[in-house]
Design a binder for these strands. Structure first.
Length: 835
DNA sequence: GAATAAATTGTTTTT
DNA sequence: CAATTTATTC
């Protein structure tokens, strides 16, 4: 077909489309606009030229943005194809797409709504060759990065103390943010011996990633900018395409992201950024608050609109938050206000230690849900705890969130929630995908797509054990280097296999074949031009399900077997996780098919590489949420507990030393407080165990900044019961007073949370906390042998639900479950309760 | 080469 | 405290 003809035809269609909708748009504007307040509407109606929306917490930012986009499409005749919206999390992107789709329908699909990283990745896949990468390049996460750095440190026999991987990594990251390659860095800092060594590692790091056909997170942005900068035609293409660009959470952009956005918007100048300088909490990761503060100067004729009306919180909470943030100096003048009523006072509580804190929160949650009987023990615990909200109850677990500064704090909280039978879900901590067994299987899959990934290969070549020790690997590496091949590539030669030890040979060969089998299938299908006469026997992409491939890999690589023979609690847990991972893969596959797309392995790997834990978080299940304040940005809850308001923890000691550290921490505090809609609790412990050492803690300086009029009367900042000066911070060795035991809790009740704990809790590392608690309880339960059931009894199982006892003997109980059918269970170990 | 024991080190926050 | 790295033994 004639290319020219196609083009003309297309532009004609677009013209007709624009005309008709514009005429219509002059009269009927989309409905959502009516629901906006005057400022929001002004922002939504703004069409051309730079626009800065300063949107305070809870000011209806997302509605304004989505309606603006819908208005552009429906009323202004802008094609969704010409719109780009960039966010920081996949969750935010998904939500925006969903809401726009609700307004304009399926044509929203044509819009690019991505995270910075996903957006850049997409651009890079298309033109990776221009930067010397192959299109199937891998994305390295922090763990991968560290491995490379460590090898570099060894390579140059440098001191790992002086050049800690984290330290080197942060330097490299900062260099990339300033658009400095290893060569640039060497030229700039090479004179200083310390930095010269870092430059050497950086150079090595750059080489390894390039050779492995891989990019790290920073590279995604850096290389996208380089691609656009160095290739006028590519830049022109995207500039022409993205006539309207929106950036969410603009206060968190770094220098590279700024350049990326600036370049893309340069042709049409239709850049709309939304953000709140008071919520910039990622400076430590390179976010440059000046991007939002200087936006008006960087982009000529910027229109600035402030959204200052808060629709989220009661006035008391807002007053409290405002009284804290006003202590920051460098901010745009902006003051949140609300029509809402005062609402409940902020609860401030001083507790003894982290366990006490957790117990207090757990009790409070129970009261908020169940209400409180003044004659009950809970009331006897102290009149000081009774306030109006306690009496009525009626809250749901999902209304509540416990937020904290560091992930480590979740432990004590989890324990208390489990003991109190409170369902919770934990977001964050160790990423599910960072687990060893998951990373291993991912490495196998990565190699299928990208055979150059030596890092992935080294990771799994002896996992399961194939008798490949350090010496052999060294030899292989040198060999591969000399031939300028990847190690996997090298291992595809029979002579190389022959050079291995006798017991390694068949094992390694089998593994290489397992990987190669699938890479040939996938490569055949990704090159659509090569639609050769398909040999009837070989598999094609359509025939193979990712799920089945995964199963096959588990077996043919010997990975599953390797775990099975270990027969330890640990290996069983790993197998369990691998099975869960299969579900993840299957769900991805289903999701893609539902969207009418073909699920691809590379698509899956990509998705996994770029997801954060928050992305999977949904507020539907009835469970209390536990997460860091960082993760909570953008979310809201009727009731919020801010735990650990102590100097040294929040703000952290480190931030107290840094230049603008306190201001960033204060913004974080502000973010935390403004998550609450109706009720805010601030908790502070007098002492806390950190690294297994007990430390006395001082009240957080932020607590002192809160307007005392917003507090309830029970306790005030600055008033320790002791009324004494605090000594110097930390260091004091001692033991935590054994807290009052959680009396009155029958052990059989402890399983209550299991069925309600979400998949999330079981996915995350902190679930190990849950598991440990449960196993210890199970042990006690068995020892006490207090479960007496007979045929005909009704029982409840933590996982299987209710059922009827069919038969019992010395060791086992046979139960017919309502939903799961008949099961034989081990007496004393199965989490059973008589009902 | 692999399985144990001993020693060390780290906690902010995450796309 | 617990996760990870190093040393030691088999």
């Amino acid at each position: 077909m004639n290319r020219k003809f196609v083009l003309n035809n297309c532009s004609l269609c677009v013209m007709i489309f624009i005309q008709t909708t514009t005429i219509r748009g002059d009269k009927i504007l989309i409905e959502g606009l009516n629901k906006l307040n005057p400022m929001q509407r002004e922002a939504a109606l703004h069409k051309d030229g730079p626009l800065l929306i300063l949107a305070g917490a809870g000011s209806g930012k997302t509605s304004t943005m989505t309606i603006r986009i819908a208005h552009l499409i429906e009323d202004e005749g802008v094609s969704p194809y010409n719109i780009l919206a960039v966010t920081f999390t996949n969750k935010a992107a998904a939500e925006m797409r969903e809401r726009i789709e609700a307004l304009v329908g399926s044509k929203a699909n044509r819009m690019w709504i991505f995270t910075f990283h996903a957006c850049c990745l997409r651009i890079l896949r298309r033109d990776a060759d221009r930067l010397g990468y192959k299109p199937d390049f891998a994305v390295y996460d922090t763990t991968d990065q560290k491995v490379v750095i460590k090898r570099g440190i060894k390579e140059f026999s440098l001191d790992e103390k002086k050049y800690a991987p984290n330290y080197v990594l942060s330097i490299i990251s900062k260099a990339k943010e300033k658009s400095m390659t290893a060569t640039d860095y060497q030229a700039a800092f090479g004179q200083n011996p310390q930095y010269a060594a870092v430059a050497k590692i950086y150079t090595y790091y750059e080489e390894v990633l390039k050779r492995n056909n891989a990019m790290d997170f920073d590279d995604l942005i850096f290389n996208a900018v380089r691609l656009l900068r160095g290739n006028q035609d590519v830049l022109a293409y995207y500039q022409e395409r993205f006539k309207y660009i929106m950036v969410d959470e603009y206060q968190d952009t770094n220098a590279l992201q700024y350049q990326f956005v600036k370049m893309l918007s340069d042709a049409h100048d239709n850049l709309c950024v939304v953000g709140d300088d008071d919520q910039c909490i990622y400076q430590w990761r390179g976010a440059d608050i000046r991007n939002i503060l200087d936006f008006e100067h960087d982009f000529k004729d910027t229109k600035v609109i402030k959204l200052e009306q808060n629709y989220r919180s009661h006035k008391t909470i807002l007053d409290a938050a405002n009284s804290v943030i006003k202590n920051n100096t460098d901010r745009k003048s902006k003051k949140l206000w609300t029509d809402a009523e005062d609402g409940e006072k902020v609860s401030y509580r001083i507790v003894d230690n982290e366990k006490d804190e957790a117990r207090y929160i757990a009790r409070e949650i129970t009261s908020l849900v169940d209400g409180i009987d003044l004659n009950s023990t809970a009331a006897k615990l102290g009149a000081s705890w009774v306030n109006s909200s306690l009496l009525d109850g009626g809250r749901e677990y999902r209304d509540m969130a416990i937020l904290y500064r560091t992930n480590a704090q979740s432990r004590a909280l989890e324990e208390a929630l489990i003991y109190s039978k409170i369902p919770y879900k934990l977001v964050g901590g160790v990423r599910y995908y960072d687990r060893k067994e998951i990373k291993d299987m991912m490495s196998y899959m990565r190699l299928i797509i990208n055979p150059d990934d030596d890092l992935a290969l080294m990771r799994i070549i002896n996992e399961p054990k194939r008798g490949m020790g350090a010496k052999t690997l060294e030899k292989l590496e040198a060999w591969a280097r000399s031939q300028d091949k990847s190690i996997l590539n090298l291992l595809q030669n029979q002579e190389v296999i022959d050079s291995l030890s006798a017991k390694s040979q068949p094992l390694v060969k089998q593994m290489v074949e397992a990987i190669t089998k699938y890479s040939s299938i996938f490569n055949l299908n990704s090159n659509e031009n090569q639609e050769s006469e398909s040999d009837s026997d070989s598999l094609s992409l359509d025939d193979i399900r990712l799920e089945d491939m995964y199963d096959d890999l588990l077996v043919s690589t010997g990975y599953l077997k390797g775990l099975e023979v270990q027969e330890t609690v640990e290996s069983e847990g790993r197998i369990e996780n691998l099975m869960e991972f299969k579900t993840v893969i299957a769900e991805y596959e289903k999701g893609e098919e539902a969207n009418g797309e073909v699920a691809s392995l590379s698509g899956f790997l990509e998705k996994v590489a770029l997801v954060a834990d928050v992305d999977n978080y949904n507020q539907n299940e009835d469970a209390v949420t536990l997460m860091t304040i960082h993760s909570a940005k953008g979310l809201e809850f009727p009731v919020v507990f801010l735990a650990g308001m102590e100097d040294g923890l929040f703000p952290t000691t480190r931030s107290m030393e840094a230049e603008d550290g306190i201001e960033e921490e204060r913004r974080l505090c502000y973010v935390g407080m403004t998550r609450a809609k109706e009720k805010l609790y601030l908790l502070r412990a007098k002492g806390r165990t950190i690294y297994g050492r007990y430390n006395r803690m001082l009240e957080s300086r932020f607590l002192k900044e809160v307007d005392v009029n917003t507090f309830d009367k029970v306790a005030m900042p600055g008033q320790d019961e002791t009324g004494m000066f605090h000594g110097a911070m930390g260091g004091e060795d001692g033991r935590v007073k054994p807290g009052a035991s959680l009396g009155g809790m029958s052990s059989s009740n402890l399983y209550g949370s299991d069925s309600t704990n979400t998949k999330f809790a079981t996915f995350n590392s902190a679930s190990s906390v849950a598991k440990k608690i449960k196993t210890s309880v199970a042990g006690k339960n068995a020892a006490s042998g207090d479960l007496h059931v007979a045929k005909g009894d009704k029982v409840r199982h933590a996982k299987f639900g209710e059922g009827l006892v069919m038969d019992t003997d010395e060791k086992t109980i046979t139960v017919m479950f309502d939903s799961e059918g008949k099961k034989k269970l081990a007496k004393g170990f199965a989490p059973l309760t008589k009902i």
